[in-house]
Design a protein around this nucleic acid. Structure first.
Lengths: 252, 252
DNA sequence: GCTCGGCACTGGTCCGACCAGTGAACTTCG
DNA sequence: CGAAGTTCACTGGTCGGACCAGTGCCGAGC
């Protein structure tokens, strides 16, 4: 329960792990910034006193973590990457596919995140951010005639704009992650079913309601509308038994 | 904007990446289950037709992703691991440390997650889950005299129990992740400041309020109390300028 | 001045080798 | 016959050296 023991479990430390730690440490201490380059593998061999296979294993781990990227032939060496939620999205996608993560859970979570984002946006948005949201709605309207793909893309922009205005990077990340996962799991079904102008216009109307609430500073209302809209939009794709969870989020 | 092109960007596919994909695919198709073992590196060399360094790089990536674990000398070969949120937590921790993720954002996010979890728990909890929550509160009360470390641990158990009852794995994961990150960033400060019996008893009383609302099926109330409790608990550690975000979550 | 080709260097892959550790089969003893 | 200790085949970790296909720079030729 507590963390009082002065001792740690000892386990053999692999050399490549040591290298990974050193490089990650240098980055988190700011000694290496995104865009900068690491020395070439052969130079690192000298710097760390390890062999090239070992250095390469360390680079593979860093690459898997989304920290650096190696490109063959690049004379500048591996590049330190800016943080992106891609790594997070990948992990969550794996979770969604491997584990008992159901569509209902995903949608419910999205209701929470998007609702909270709308609420925060209503209270915190700057005039510019509000204008940006309105612009995405205009884009949505224009894309209706183009087809569902374009409409869906504009829809994403709208939700991104809201997440942006929430001023909370965790929300932005979760928004991006869940959007990716949802897209991957059920968007094909939705795209076939919803490819009708009437339904897209209905969706657009819902988005307008959310934006109106945000514009009016009505956070609670924006959150409520946002959650209900998502429920209506996706409920048909969620098994009966799971809808209770989602409905619980609408009781207010 | 749209994804209509029939062509994909071509990029050289690394052999080790191919191996990673195959093994991950086998796992997600259920052909490899957690606890099972992969063939030894030398066998994999034959199975994939790649050299050992290449196979090893693939295993390093899988290991970094938390998919398998290699132990030197183990005659059974690398082990397929059950999914854990450790990988997610690691990524988020890195984000929190590297990027502009502030304490205020983290706490605000925790208010959202914990509040939503409490709300869902109020509507969905089984009698057993309610009993489990009550048990953690009893443990909290008993741990007050032991010290802040024990109290904090019991506190975590309480919030875990709520997340559990929310029936949403995404919430459980976010709960675990944010808890880890918050713990890492500011818990030492809190532990010094709050190591007084009176303050712990006050915190305990707040927890009781939340549980009472959950027990009564008052989801909205549970969420509201939970958010406010977190705000009161942590607000002192958040810079003035960021408190607005957090306060926005309390306007209901 | 601009273009084009060569070149030094990159990362990707392979081979063969050695080491310390592990666990199971085997041997030995009660 | 069963339990305890020992042996040993095999594991993953690390190393050095080697070859290849690309990349980007720089100098030669226009």
């Amino acid at each position: 329960m507590s963390r009082t023991s002065p001792f740690r479990q000892v386990r053999p430390v692999r050399l490549y792990q040591n290298i990974v730690d050193q490089i990650e440490g240098a980055i988190s201490r700011g000694e290496l910034k995104p865009g900068e380059r690491l020395p070439s593998e052969r130079e690192l061999v000298g710097l760390f006193g390890a062999s090239r296979p070992t250095v390469r294993e360390a680079l593979r781990v860093l690459e898997a973590n989304g920290v650096v990227r190696s490109r063959p032939g690049d004379p500048n060496g591996p590049e330190v990457l800016p943080f992106s939620s891609a790594g997070l999205a990948k992990q969550m996608t794996r979770l969604a596919q491997l584990e008992e993560l159901s569509i209902g859970e995903l949608i419910a979570f999205r209701m929470i995140i998007d609702g909270s984002a709308s609420m925060l946006a209503a209270y915190l948005r700057s005039p510019e951010e509000l204008a940006a949201m309105q612009a995405t709605l205009v884009a949505m309207e224009g894309s209706i005639e183009v087809g569902y793909d374009a409409f869906s893309a504009a829809d994403l922009d709208f939700h991104d704009a809201i997440a942006q205005a929430s001023r909370n990077r965790m929300i932005q990340i979760c928004n991006a992650v869940v959007r990716d996962v949802v897209l991957q799991l059920i968007e094909d079904k939705v795209s076939h079913a919803l490819d009708s102008e009437a339904l897209m216009r209905e969706s657009l109307a819902h988005h307008r309601e959310v934006l109106a609430a945000i514009g009016a500073g009505d956070g609670e209302g924006a959150a409520r509308i946002s959650r209900r809209k998502l429920y209506d939009y996706y409920a048909g794709y969620v098994p009966e038994g799971e809808q209770a969870t989602m409905l619980a989020l609408l009781e207010d």
